[in-house]
Design a protein around this nucleic acid. Structure first.
Lengths: 121, 121
DNA sequence: CTAAAGGTTCACGTCGGCGTGAAGGTCAAG
DNA sequence: CTTGACCTTCACGCCGACGTGAACCTTTAG
């Protein structure tokens, strides 16, 4: 699979895929002509990259986490033990973020229901 | 209260406060010399701005929401009815974001506990 | 052979929420 | 009257995850 095909399968632009490679997140093979070659595993990796980035982790963090995400996360790849502290930090960050989002969500809900009550008078 | 005092009270930089004004989020009075003058209400407004921005809303959206946040959100200011659709859209966005964050959080938890199990062998 | 589709590597542009000087005006205290 | 804290308005810088050409090469189809 070459870059265009992977882009279509994942919904991620080819430019983004090249960017992921530049950042060491996604390392494809190469044909003799220099074309990038991807496997099925890369599809799953891209999915994970997207999720992690969407959660606000930067690419450095994603690069460190990815090799630790073996299958369903039951196992831990070697070298990942040292990163536990960093992961806990990220988890705290995410929990804080979730709490903030919940606040705004309920504030929005308050406004919305007040608005609908007004509209139905 | 002038800008430095408000900065100290809110923990937000003076630059940020000027930026909020530029974006129409926070409109202070002015002394004859041109100094910005803030009241106690502005303190609360800044708090709300920070929360909304932290939730990923952009300044345009914050500017539209702020006047709709009367007191505890029980009432709705006039003119806010038209924005309900936009607010519902933001709420959906936030709910999606929360779900994504939860996914990453549990993934991180899986890795962390796997790592700690490994460390305690 | 040729055209079209897709690939390659630079390298600069974008957007949003500010940071960071620069150059100068204001005001209360000593 | 001067110092120093605080304020003002420009206006450029930054970061991160890409978008967007430009100029060129590869592969497949007719």
């Amino acid at each position: 699979m070459r870059i265009g095909a992977l882009a279509r399968r994942t919904g991620v632009s080819a430019r983004a895929l090249r960017y992921y490679e530049e950042k060491g997140l996604l390392v494809p093979g190469r044909t003799s002509a220099g074309y990038r070659v991807y496997t099925e595993e890369h599809v799953e990796t891209v999915r994970r990259i997207r999720i992690l980035l969407a959660a606000g982790l930067n690419s450095d963090m994603v690069r460190e986490i990815l090799p630790c995400m073996v299958d369903d996360g039951e196992f831990l790849a070697p070298g990942c033990e040292d990163l536990i502290a960093a992961f806990e930090h990220e988890r705290r960050r995410i929990e804080t973020q979730i709490a903030e989002l919940n606040d705004v969500r309920s504030a929005l809900s308050g406004i919305i229901s007040a608005g609908k009550a007004l509209a139905s008078r």
